[in-house]
Design a protein around this nucleic acid. Structure first.
Length: 409
RNA sequence: GUGGAAUUAGCUCAGUCGGUUAGAGCAUCAGGUUGUGGUUCUGAGGGUCGUGGGUUCGAUUCCCAUAUUCCACCCCA
């Protein structure tokens, strides 16, 4: 038996119901906020991710599905969504056009990781990107969108907030931090030693208790922000307070993608195991120029759909449409005719087996139909169809022609 | 990439200290005297015990390999 590749799942009907419900809910909210759908290719030039996500990141360093295509191009399956959207933004010269551009997208992403619950090699993200808005109000808008979406889906969560600083304060802080790390280099773990060189900010995030004990005394990013970053961060907190959105400041919150600056946030759930980050995002004002575009401020977020799926509180399923069945083989043609008419405007599912009324009622129940329509010997002789409303428990028998004419009218 | 656990019916799981026909609940299907469901009762079907090797008279059970899932690390959505 050939099975799907490790960490790559099929989405069957029952699960897809949740998937689709998420998609329609999230898309509807994004549209209400004034965002437009964008679709970009799954396959991109590898250089795109090296330059945006960053070579020091784990994603680019060891998790990409990268290969050479038949034309000799170095390509890879996209590991995240932002880079492709920014590429499209620049390629279509929207940076030069100016103004505000707001996009939302969803689709599969690929990362070659060791799978576990909530971590797949092919997974789906829903994300939004906003270009051309400098104001921290847009950062708040992102957070409000995620909050709205999670609320609409009945998903409990916590919001973690941090500011990563910008080009005025980040480099200075980074140097300060590196000096601090060097001061206690003998005591830190090998991972942190590596991080010191690749991405020193990440040491703050280290899970090693020994390291954490040392880093209590490390310089805090938030205490080293420049005036602009600090005031924006304060404004953001005020906006969230005004909108009654709870948050916790996490000075160790570091995004794993190199392009973030200033606002960084992460929504976490306590109900899904160790892969608890359900949404993450932040500002990335420098990324557009990294990708050869005209400097444009930008913010965005992405949500991991699979991680959300089991948390979604689904609305009560409603009975809908018709189930049609025949009680003897001779009535089957009439059933098909009735179904054909009904389908002009309704869901109509036909059972081709002639069976007892009881069996048909069970069948109607199983597919969650509102009406069970049956033709047996009696109905066939009279040219009628028997219909039971499974919710109101009311039965009626009407002429078959009446039903057909009504639906064709 | 590192360490650990699991894999038996469609699903959730028992079980065999290595020995005839491997069990339960749920689900499915069929019936409960002539055509009334989602809530009852009875019965039936369904498993080369993840896959490939090895040990043995004999392996679902022991050993090895491999795949997948899960947990922790790591990372992130």
């Amino acid at each position: 038996m050939i099975q799907s590749l490790r960490g790559m799942n099929d989405i069957l009907s029952s699960e897809y119901e949740r998937f689709e419900y998420f998609l329609t809910t999230a898309s509807e909210i994004a549209k209400r906020y004034g965002f437009h759908y964008i679709e970009t290719p799954l396959l991109e030039e590898t250089a795109l991710f090296k330059r945006s996500v960053g070579e020091s990141s784990d994603i680019v360093g060891k998790e990409m599905y990268q290969f050479t295509d038949k034309g000799g191009n170095d390509v890879c399956l996209r590991p995240e969504g932002t880079a492709g959207v920014v590429r499209a933004f620049v390629q279509h010269k929207l940076d030069k056009k100016g103004g505000i551009h707001r996009f939302y997208y969803h689709g599969p992403m690929f990362r070659y990781e060791r799978p576990q619950k909530g971590r797949l090699r092919e997974f789906h993200q829903f994300g939004v990107e906003s270009f051309g808005v400098d104001s921290v109000y847009e950062d708040a808008l992102m957070i409000m969108m995620v909050s709205d979406t999670l609320k609409a889906l009945g998903i409990g969560h916590r919001l973690k907030l941090n500011s990563l600083g910008d080009q005025n304060c980040m480099p200075a802080y980074r140097e300060k931090l590196v000096r601090f790390i060097e001061s206690c280099e003998d005591a830190i773990c090998p991972d942190c030693e590596r991080r010191k060189l690749t991405n020193p900010i990440r040491v703050l995030d280290c899970k090693n208790e020994g390291c954490q004990a040392l880093y209590v005394k490390a310089p805090k990013l938030i205490e080293n922000l420049c005036d602009g970053c600090l005031s924006d961060f304060d404004t953001l907190k005020t906006i969230l307070d005004n909108h009654a959105i709870g948050y916790e400041i996490d000075t160790n919150l570091v995004r794993g993608l190199d392009y973030y600056s200033k606002t960084a946030f992460e929504f976490v759930s306590d109900d899904i195991g160790s892969q608890s980050a359900i949404a993450g995002g932040g500002r990335y004002d420098r990324l557009i120029e990294f990708l050869d575009g005209k400097s444009t401020p930008a913010v965005g977020f992405a949500l991991g759909i699979e991680r959300l799926l089991e948390l979604i509180v689904m609305p009560e399923p409603t009975r809908r449409g018709y189930y049609l069945g025949a009680m003897d083989p001779e009535s089957i043609p009439d059933i098909l005719k009735a179904a054909e008419s009904l389908r002009q405007s309704e869901k109509a599912v036909v059972d081709y087996e002639a069976k007892s009324l009881k069996a048909h009622l069970k069948g109607a129940d199983r597919i969650n139909a509102r009406y069970c329509a049956v033709i047996g010997e009696n109905e066939r002789k009279e040219g009628t169809i028997w219909i039971k409303d499974l919710v109101e428990k009311q039965e009626s028998t009407l002429p078959l022609t009446h039903l057909i004419m009504k639906e064709n009218a």
